[in-house]
Simulated assay, not measured.
Amino acid sequence: MTMRRPTAILLALLAFAILAGCALLEGESPLTPEERRWVKDHPDGVKVGVGLHYPPYETFDLNGSYQGLSADFISLISEKTGLEFKPVRFRNRQETLKALLSGEVQVMAALEMTPSSARIWISRSRTSACPPPSSAARSSPRT
């Protein structure tokens, strides 16, 4: 069995778990009052850096529509929180990462944690108010 099949199965199970958890929040905002204010104060949304072709995570179809697992998760997050996301295309993942690091975009949806990206996030987390993606977690209950 190749690594692709277990990875695909794991991703599918993760997607189902997240969707099931979101179904429990039906009619209830998953955001704190402070987070809801932030969303309201940012009606233009958040720019998401997207590499042109990184299936199955993200790609653009022939009509220019953002698609893939990341696009599906972003759509679900938008639906549950009201936060708008604006995909911004880049030719490849390296350009997307540069745009993220320069502040041209605020989010890179399909960012894998590699040894080199871990070094970037560790060095940036010392000077940034935003924690690296792998360590962003809520430690207190929602209000």
Rank of each mutant, 00 (worst) to 15 (best):
Y54M: 04
D72N: 06
I9L: 11
P131M: 05
L31Q: 07
M1R: 06
P132K: 02
R37A: 12
V46T: 11
G21C: 10
L101E: 14
I9M: 05
R124D: 03
Q67M: 00
C130P: 02
E104R: 07
E26Q: 09
R37W: 15
S140R: 13
T59F: 01
L76Q: 07
R36G: 00
L52F: 15
A137R: 15
R5Q: 11
V46D: 03
Y54L: 02
V105C: 03
Y54E: 03
E79I: 09
F85D: 03
M3E: 09
S102F: 14
A129Y: 07
E104A: 06
T81N: 06
A17L: 14
A118D: 14
I9V: 14
R142I: 12
D61Q: 09
Q106C: 03
S29G: 10
R5I: 13
K98S: 14
F60D: 00
D72Y: 03
L52C: 08
T7I: 11
V107A: 04
M3V: 08
I9P: 02
T2Y: 09
Q106I: 05
E28D: 13
R138Y: 13
D72H: 03
L19C: 06
K98A: 09
P56H: 00
S116A: 05
E26L: 13
T59Y: 00
T143E: 08
G45A: 06
T7L: 06
L97F: 11
A118L: 14
P87C: 04
S135E: 11
L10S: 11
S134W: 15
P141Y: 13
D44W: 08
E79R: 07
R37F: 15
S29P: 09
E112V: 10
T7K: 01
E34V: 08
G68W: 01
S65H: 08
A136Q: 12
E26P: 07
S116W: 15
I122F: 12
R89Q: 12
L69F: 00
